[in-house]
Measured scan of single mutants.
Amino acid sequence: MALNTPQITPTKKITVRAIGEELPRGDYQRCPQCDMLFSLPEINSHQSAYCPRCQAKIRDGRDWSLTRLAAMAFTMLLLMPFAWGEPLLHIWLLGIRIDANVMQGIWQMTKQGDAITGSMVFFCVIGAPLILVTSIAYLWFGNRLGMNLRPVLLMLERLKEWVMLDIYLVGIGVASIKVQDYAHIQAGVGLFSFVALVILTTVTLSHLNVEELWERFYPQRPATRRDEKLRVCLGCHFTGYPDQRGRCPRCHIPLRLRRRHSLQKCWAALLASIVLLLPANLLPISIIYLNGGRQEDTILSGIMSLASSNIAVAGIVFIASILVPFTKVIVMFTLLLSIHFKCQQGLRTRILLLRMVTWIGRWSMLDLFVISLTMSLINRDQILAFTMGPAAFYFGAAVILTILAVEWLDSRLLWDAHESGNARFDD
């Protein structure tokens, strides 16, 4: 018995066209964080690309023209004298008006014999932002004059995390709450300039795509075929072959399989920071003279006294001054041990922890910024005066060393310790 099946006739004509040209192939790229070699397709503007294995951002879609970056830099340069030299806060102490600005706080630190601690604050609040705007201006002028731009481009990517104007702005709020127990506070004209400078700096850093600047100024022929001998440069993120001198053909720094002496430098910085954190938390970090009496505060006791007036601000200072430094030390110690013992479990967790400490590390400088600003506000000789204690130097040095330890660690070593050939990683 035959089955009668109805015929289905399409209502619209289906047209099949042959592909007349070869589909576009992607360029081969190595991930600078996990060293995976993959094919990167062509990316349009405002599109980002991520590593298929570790999800690290390979290409950032946010990109401004150099002219727009230069305009932002010149605007920031105009704001800087007002943000640093004009009063941020006014207080009335014992019937006398006192003005506080950024430069005055750094000068008070240096004047009291601790120039190293003052230079830490100076670099993060004044030096690094000033280098940022002058570097962008150098790129703008240098591109037109045919100057060598490689050193500036190499420095810009590392400079971003040292620009800490946003953290200093939080420190202004913390210092205001600490001082309000002794005097009446009012915002100064410099505060508005400083807030504007923070906003412009944040926007500029978020749109400063150094890798795209490398592509514009020093374009290189990408690798179009897969080759395990391809290496990625950690300076400019170019994937290719080393030249005859073993250097990256684009930025001219040595092109090595792994960062040289990464573990040794990381261990040295980490152990030194552990040693410095002990006096930083045991010795007094601030000293207040009130009517001839002397009151010393460690980091913890200062947080407890701050909690009596504002528990939320005390929580912020606790996280930045105690929780973050010790968390960074514990995480980095764990990561280094996992590399030495070739741990194969929990790779995803370790990668996330490394990215976390990379982002939060700079916030530990908050305590030094609060001390710097408070020193310029309260300084009335023996009637009422505020000065920093010996722990300030140890704390600042420990924070900087932990930042350097994270920067010096080559994250690809975590993958080397893991089993080879993993296309995915999980716990």
Rank of each mutant, 00 (worst) to 15 (best):
L3K: 14
T5Y: 07
P6H: 14
Q7A: 15
I8M: 10
K12M: 13
K12T: 09
I14P: 12
T15K: 13
R17V: 13
R17G: 13
R17M: 09
I19D: 10
R25C: 10
D27S: 13
R30H: 09
R30L: 12
C31W: 00
C31M: 00
P32T: 14
C34V: 00
C34E: 00
C34K: 00
M36S: 12
F38V: 07
F38S: 07
S39I: 15
L40R: 14
P41N: 14
I43G: 12
H46W: 12
Y50R: 07
P52F: 04
C54D: 03
Q55T: 13
K57F: 05
I58D: 03
D60R: 11
G61M: 15
R62Y: 08
W64C: 14
L66A: 14
R68I: 15
A70I: 15
M72K: 04
A73K: 08
F74Q: 07
F74A: 13
M76W: 05
L78E: 02
L78H: 06
M80K: 05
P87K: 13
P87S: 06
L89R: 06
L89I: 15
H90T: 11
V102Y: 09
K111H: 15
G113P: 05
G113S: 10
S119A: 10
F123S: 02
C124T: 14
A128I: 04
A128L: 02
P129K: 06
L132E: 02
T134Y: 04
S135T: 01
L139F: 01
R144N: 06
L145Y: 08
G146Y: 01
G146W: 02
N148G: 05
L149V: 13
L149Y: 02
V152E: 01
L153A: 14
L156K: 04
E157I: 14
E157L: 14
K160E: 08
K160C: 07
W162N: 01
W162M: 01
M164A: 03
M164H: 06
D166I: 15
D166H: 15
I167H: 02
I167P: 08
I167N: 01
V174F: 14
A175Q: 02
D181R: 00
A187Q: 12
G190E: 02
S193I: 01
V195A: 08
V198P: 07
V198T: 14
I199M: 12
T202V: 11
L205W: 15
N209G: 10
E212A: 15
E212G: 15
L213T: 13
W214G: 11
Y218D: 06
R221V: 06
T224E: 15
R225K: 09
R225S: 10
R225G: 07
K229P: 13
L230Q: 09
V232Q: 13
V232Y: 13
C233Y: 00
L234S: 07
G240P: 04
P242E: 06
P242Q: 14
R245K: 08
R250Y: 02
H252I: 03
I253G: 02
I253Q: 03
P254C: 04
P254R: 15
L257K: 08
R260P: 03
R260G: 06
H261D: 06
H261E: 06
S262P: 04
Q264C: 01
A268R: 00
A269L: 15
L271I: 07
A272W: 02
L277V: 07
L278D: 07
A280N: 04
L282T: 09
P284W: 07
P284Y: 04
P284A: 09
I285G: 01
I285P: 02
I287M: 07
L290A: 02
G292D: 03
R294W: 03
Q295C: 08
Q295W: 11
Q295I: 07
D297Q: 07
D297K: 07
T298W: 04
I303F: 06
I303A: 10
M304S: 08
S305V: 07
S305A: 11
A307T: 10
S308I: 09
I311C: 10
A312R: 15
G315N: 14
I316A: 10
I319D: 13
A320P: 01
I330M: 15
M332L: 12
F333E: 08
L336N: 12
L337H: 12
L337A: 13
H340G: 08
F341L: 09
Q344H: 12
Q345L: 14
G346R: 15
L347A: 14
R348T: 10
L354S: 12
M356P: 13
V357W: 07
W359D: 08
I360A: 13
G361A: 08
R362N: 03
R362H: 05
W363H: 07
W363Q: 06
W363N: 03
L366F: 04
L366K: 01
L366A: 09
D367Q: 00
F369D: 06
I371M: 09
S372V: 06
S372C: 14
S376Y: 04
L377F: 07
I378R: 00
N379T: 07
R380Y: 06
D381I: 01
D381S: 03
F386D: 00
G389I: 00
F393Y: 07
F395Y: 12
V399P: 05
I403H: 02
L404T: 15
W408M: 04
L409W: 02
L409A: 10
S411L: 07
R412K: 06
L413A: 07
L413W: 10
L413V: 10
L414Q: 06
W415H: 12
D416Q: 07
H418R: 06
S420G: 09
A423E: 14
R424P: 15
F425I: 15
